[in-house]
Design a binder for these strands. Structure first.
Lengths: 286, 286
DNA sequence: CGCGGGCCATACCCGTCCGGTATCAAGCCA
DNA sequence: TGGCTTGATACCGGACGGGTATGGCCCGCG
C-alpha cells in the first residue's frame, strides 16, 4: 500500500467525477463497474480521504474530490499532449523557442503564428526565461531559437533583427529626472541601480544596469521585480521605452545608450532546416 | 501494446536521464537493472522513437528524450504535489482564491503572504480568470474567495474593500483626447469601445466599456487584448489609472465614472472559518 | 408494506504484467 | 586477449488488474 498515484487511476477518477455515476463511467471506460469501484477506493485510501459521497442515485464529489479534479484534469491533458510532442520531436518536427520574459510580445506571437501557418505540422514550444539569461537557454542547448534582445556576448550565435527599441531609465514620476525630456547614464552616476544575478552575461548586465558592481544594490530576476523596486525604493533600471509601466512610473529616454534590438538568435553552427526556415521569416520580413 | 503512458514509466525515465546510467538509476529506484532496461524500451516503443543513445559508458538523451524530459519533470512535480493538496483539502485546510487577471498584483501577493504567515499549514490555490468573469469563479463554487474589482452584481456575496482605484480611458498617445487632463464617457459618445464576451456580468461590462451593445465592436477577454486593440485600432476601454501600459498608450482620467474598488469577495452564506480568517486580514487592515 | 429495480460494495477467479535471477553481447583498457 | 564495464535478453514467480456473481442499501411503486 501507499503506492504512488498513477495516471490510470486519475483517468478513472475523472471519468467517474464527470459522469457522477460509477456504472456509466465504467461503460465509457469499456470495463465493468466493480473494478472501477475498487479503483476509486484505492485512490481514496491512497489519499486517506473520501473523494465521493455515495448517494442513492450515483456519486458526487467531496471537497477533496473537487480539489483533485481541478488538479487531475490539467495533469491528464499534459500527459496526453506528451505523446504527441515526443513523436513529433523524434521526427525532427519540434522547434523549441526560448523567449526572454518581456519579449514574448506581439512580435513573438506574430512570428510563431506565421511559422505555424507555413509549417502546420511542426510543434513549437515556447520557453520563457528570466533576465539572468539573455540567450534564453540557447547556449545550454535547451532551445533551438531564442527571441531576445541585444546586447549579449554573441560568439557562435547568429542573430536577425526584428525591431529596434530606444531605451530609457525607469524612475518614479516624483523623481526629479522624470520631468526631463531625456537624460544620460553619466548624469545618473552615484544613484542606486538594480543588480542582475551573478553569472549573468556581463555585456548584458552592463547595458541594462550601468553596474558598478556594488553588491548592496538590490537583486532582480524579472522585469516586474525591477519595476517594483523602482516604485518602492527609487532604484534605477534601463528598459525599452515600449515597456508597459504601472502608474507612477515613467521611462525617460537615454541619450548615451544605443537602442536595444529585439532579435531572433540561433546557434550558428549547423542550424537545422526548421531553424533556417524560422529565421527566414525574420530576415525576409524586415 | 500502445497502452497509455503511466507515471511509473516516466519516473523511471527521469531517473535514468538524470543518472545517464541504467545501472545506477536502478539502484536509486531500489530495483535491479533488467526490468528498468525493459521499462525504457517499453516507453520507446510506446512513443515509436528512441529516447536514449546507448554508449559504452552509459546512455545519453536523444532529441526526443530531451523533449520528453522537459515535459516529464514538471508533470511528475505536479503529480507529487497532488497528493499533498488533496490530503490538505480533506482536512479542510485548502483555500481556493480566485483572482481577476490584473488583480493578482502586490496587494494580492501581500494578502496571501500574510495569510501564509498566520496559518502556515493551509494550502492556498490561486486561480486566475479573464475579464469575462468578475467574480473569478466564486459564484460557480470553483473558489472560496475572489480577489477582484467592483462593480459586479453582488447579490449573495460579501465584499471587503482593499483599495480604491480611480479609472480612466485608455487611448493612443496620438489621440486628441490623450492631451486632456481628464474627460468623460459622455464626451466619447460614438467612438468604438471594446466589447466583453456575451454572458459577462452586465453591471461589470457596462462599467468598463460604456457599451451600447453594437455587435461589431471588437471582443476582448484579457487586459492585454484590450490594450493591443487600443494601440492598433484606437478602440476605447476603461482601465484603472494604475494599470501598466505599454509605450504609446496613456490613460486619461474619467470624471463621470466612480472609482473601481479592489475587493475581496466571498459567498455570504455560511463562510468557512478559513474564509472568515482570510477576510479579517482585509477588514482589519484597511 | 413488501417487492422490484436501481445504485455501489464485496467476494472470488483468472490472465497479464512487473520485478526478480541468471546469462549474454558488446565496447573499453590493461 | 582477458577482465572489466556497459545495457539487453530469457525465463520464472508473485502481485495486481479486470472479469463474473452476489450482497446490501435506498427508493418508489403496486
Amino acid at each position: 500500500m501507499a503506492r504512488a498515484v498513477e495516471l490510470r487511476l486519475l483517468r478513472y477518477f475523472v471519468t467517474v467525477a464527470t459522469e457522477r455515476h460509477v456504472g456509466r463511467a465504467a461503460q465509457r471506460l469499456h470495463m465493468t463497474q466493480p473494478p472501477l469501484s475498487r479503483a476509486i477506493q484505492q485512490l481514496e485510501t491512497e489519499f486517506g480521504a473520501a473523494l465521493f459521497d455515495r448517494t442513492p442515485h450515483g456519486v458526487e464529489l467531496t471537497r477533496a474530490g473537487q480539489v483533485l479534479m481541478e488538479d487531475a484534469v490539467p495533469l491528464l491533458d499534459q500527459a496526453d499532449r506528451l505523446r504527441l510532442r515526443v513523436t513529433r520531436a523524434a521526427d525532427g518536427a519540434v522547434l523549441r523557442l526560448g523567449s526572454l520574459a518581456d519579449t514574448a510580445d506581439q512580435a513573438g506571437h506574430d512570428l510563431v503564428a506565421a511559422f505555424r501557418r507555413r509549417q502546420p505540422g511542426v510543434e513549437i514550444t515556447v520557453v520563457e526565461t528570466d533576465l539572468s539569461d539573455p540567450t534564453a537557454g540557447l547556449r545550454a542547448g535547451r532551445v533551438d531559437l531564442a527571441l531576445t534582445r541585444t546586447p549579449f556576448s554573441d560568439d557562435g550565435l547568429a542573430v536577425a533583427t526584428i525591431r529596434t527599441d530606444p531605451v530609457g531609465v525607469v524612475v518614479a514620476a516624483a523623481d526629479p529626472v522624470a520631468t526631463q525630456e531625456s537624460t544620460t547614464v553619466a548624469a545618473l552616476a552615484g544613484r542606486t541601480w538594480i543588480r542582475l544575478p551573478d553569472g549573468t552575461d556581463p555585456v548584458w548586465a552592463a547595458y541594462w544596469t550601468a553596474a558598478d558592481d556594488r553588491p548592496h544594490h538590490p537583486l532582480a530576476r524579472t522585469i516586474q521585480e525591477c519595476l517594483r523596486s523602482a516604485a518602492w525604493n527609487g532604484t534605477l533600471v534601463i528598459a525599452p521605452l515600449s515597456q508597459a509601466l504601472p502608474g507612477g512610473l515613467v521611462c525617460v529616454p537615454l541619450a548615451d545608450r544605443p537602442p536595444s534590438r529585439v532579435v531572433l538568435a540561433w546557434r550558428a553552427s549547423q542550424p537545422s532546416p526548421l531553424v533556417r526556415s524560422f529565421a527566414r521569416l525574420v530576415s525576409g520580413a524586415s
